[in-house]
Simulated scan of single mutants.
Amino acid sequence: MTPRFATDVITFYHPAFWGLDSDDAVRDKALADPVAFWERVMDAMAESGVTGLELTFAPGDIGSVLRAFGSASAFRRELDVRGLSLVSAFIADSDAPDWQDAGSLPAIVADAERRAAFVAEAGADLLVAGLPMRRTFGTRPPLFVDAAYMNRMAGVAHAVGEAVARHGVRLALHTESNSTLWYERDIDLFMALTDPQYVWLCPDSCHIALGGGDPVAVARRHAARIALAHWKDAVGPIDTHLTIDETVYARQQPYMTELGQGIVDWPGWAAAMSRTPGADTVLIELDMAPDPVTALRAGTAVARASLGRVA
């Protein structure tokens, strides 16, 4: 089976790609002319040979798509004419309901159902989410990621997974750095507490490695529940306790690199991925590439070579 290659829209967020000088300028440009933003993204994808897309936080979010094209079905048509398709949407908006707020479950479920309806209409069947972030080490009161905490998160995931399943959409949880689903132990605990019929996994090879984990071992243990994976490389584990605030994502960036330039065992990862339900999609994630077309071609080449060794 030859997989389709995909990417996250964050690949196209680097200001240099737009001839601009800041992240804010990119967001402003996309807000002012969302049609032009999406046309450039889709054209670059088509040029790179990557055909699948994951939506994420603004400016490449569901709201931006609706401002540009009016509906999920119209967006699907725009993708279709370029030989592209939607793979998934990531719940990464800053205004999404907080999973740690015990009273927010109705709002969390309603928000997920709205997104799932969009995803299904746009031709995809995956909604990706992350668990809440940890607190900075040493903060008081601390947040302990223990069995009680994970049971609460499992309850939320079950409610969301059941709700989106009624739209024909699966919920997959992403292994984000500095989140409560980061370390190998976090992943194993959460997966043990959740129902495999309603909760899937979206492992990120880079983020697992940044937490000192072995992405290949994680993928092997949970292969049967991997609906999608993010293929991304890491220069090495994060060697300090980062301050967890709105800047933490930018401070993770120096630990990330292009495929084949870091420590991830790509042949091992490819072999593990080939045994998963998500084997038909290879999502190359390159956060904010200055030249996304070249970077995607290079990443795809690494993935193809690794998959070729499996075959």
Rank of each mutant, 00 (worst) to 15 (best):
T139E: 02
P292F: 06
G236C: 06
L84E: 01
M42H: 09
E54V: 13
D214K: 09
G63W: 07
S64H: 04
L242I: 14
D8R: 10
R140M: 09
H14C: 00
M288Y: 01
M256F: 08
D95M: 10
V87I: 14
V119R: 00
A89G: 10
A107Q: 15
S177Y: 00
A124W: 00
W99A: 03
L31M: 10
G161K: 00
A303M: 12
G212H: 14
D239P: 00
G268M: 14
T281F: 05
F137E: 12
Y198A: 13
E47G: 02
Q100H: 15
A6C: 14
E162W: 01
L296R: 08
R4Y: 15
F69K: 02
A68W: 01
S177L: 01
L79G: 12
V248K: 12
A279F: 06
W99G: 01
A102Q: 12
G19R: 02
S22V: 02
S73M: 10
H230A: 13
A44L: 06
V26P: 03
R309W: 05
G130F: 03
A58F: 09
V145W: 00
A219H: 12
T247K: 13
Q197V: 15
N178R: 10
R67L: 01
L127N: 04
H167W: 01
D146R: 04
V235D: 08
G299E: 09
A68Y: 02
R77T: 04
P290Y: 00
V145L: 01
D95P: 07
A271V: 06
A129K: 02
A89E: 11
Y249V: 09
R170P: 00
M288K: 13
T257R: 08
M256G: 04
S205T: 13
V164C: 11
F118E: 08
S64I: 06
L105P: 04
D23A: 11
I226W: 13
V109L: 06
H207L: 11
A159R: 05
L55R: 02
V164K: 08
Q252I: 10
W231G: 11
A46C: 05
T257N: 09
M1P: 14
N178E: 14
V302E: 10
A234L: 00
L307N: 01
A172D: 12
V26R: 05
V119H: 05
D101F: 02
G138D: 07
M45Q: 14
W18V: 03
D146W: 05
D233E: 15
G211K: 09
Y183T: 15
T243H: 12
M42C: 08
Y198I: 05
E246N: 15
I244M: 09
D245I: 10
M150S: 07
A165K: 07
D195S: 12
A6E: 14
V264R: 11
H230N: 13
G83Y: 05
P277M: 08
D214R: 13
